[in-house]
Write a protein that binds this DNA or RNA. Sequence first.
DNA 1: TGGTATAGGTAAACGCTGTTGACCTTGTCA
DNA 2: TGACAAGGTCAACAGCGTTTACCTATACCA
Lengths: 198, 198
Amino acid sequence: MDRTDGTGSGAGPARGREATRERILASARELFTDEGYGAVSSRKIAAHAGVNVALINRYFGAKRGLLTEILREDGVFPGLIEGDRGSLTRRLAEHAVSRLHGEGTALQRALDHSAGDPDLQAVYQGRITSALIDPLEAYLGGGSDARAHASLIAVVMLGLTRVRLVEGATALRAQEREDLTRRVEAILDLCLTDFHEE
Amino acid sequence: MDRTDGTGSGAGPARGREATRERILASARELFTDEGYGAVSSRKIAAHAGVNVALINRYFGAKRGLLTEILREDGVFPGLIEGDRGSLTRRLAEHAVSRLHGEGTALQRALDHSAGDPDLQAVYQGRITSALIDPLEAYLGGGSDARAHASLIAVVMLGLTRVRLVEGATALRAQEREDLTRRVEAILDLCLTDFHEE
DNA sequence: TGGTATAGGTAAACGCTGTTGACCTTGTCA
DNA sequence: TGACAAGGTCAACAGCGTTTACCTATACCA
């Protein structure tokens, strides 16, 4: 009936559904990392994987399916929205500032640049919601305003990415790093305080 | 030598360089407003203007030139970065919250959705810098950290747009409007305080 | 052992995009 | 009348994401 992905017989690249899928995915990841989503065409990915173009759509539905698959594998803010509640904003601030300085994996940096692509709007929409806002809401305890607080956090986190993308954020990166981190932390704390107290 | 844009002789649409340019621009503005930048093709704009496609590139260099021209005509935050300094953040907060609620001109709303288009990155980069960060820096008096403060303001303003775009910001729009405005105002104030005081 | 169904892969086309270069037409001036 | 130039058109180019029809080689079953 089916080889269930036996590793070929030695000659030529591995065949079989799973092996091919994986080869396409690996090529996409590598090329997206180096050149960004928009700059890499389906044909280029296929050529790099030594595979026909049509297979991309066969296995992943469409080009954006490749990115969806890649993104599924790693979270947006791994390890940040868990653990001690008191230092949540500190962790988020440190992460945001490090991203501002171009740290993080090459893939993360590349995908920041692709975040605005109209073709990817639905992909990023799902990602921001499911990997940032939803977990934050749950982490914050689910009070009536928890989701609004989570959204405000997202405003700052996404805003920082966008300003870096669109303007370079030179002035921010020129600040003493600890000063900037503390400032972002304070802003994030303000995002989390009760809307009605004063 | 040249008619210098006389208004034709009556029959058919107006001819002449300036009239044609204006007709293309008007069509682009209308279509961008209704459908967004990415969804409108050069050929569609040309057809709507009753003009050959090639003229778009002749007069505006490329499709993005149309948007550049349109954006040149109205500022990003008209009237906000001037006047009383004490209420700057209040004005900005009110503006941001109104945008969150889908207010503002139809063109502004449409262009928010196009802000991430890779083809427009340079256009928006110039716009954010020259119409938001630069004026803010000047308005703030040009102290050594003025540009960093302006950048932080931009973080919040752009972040709000992005969260609305990508997530809908339902939870934020569900907040009592005055509460949310005051919160954003407080956050913006925090963006403007000295980095080194504590 | 032979026949067949099927999974996996390929080639070629479709319709679309933004853009460009060669051509033509029209009006003006010498 | 002839030359010139501005304004406009047509047709093509190269590329994109995607789809359809076809081929091939394997695995199973009679």
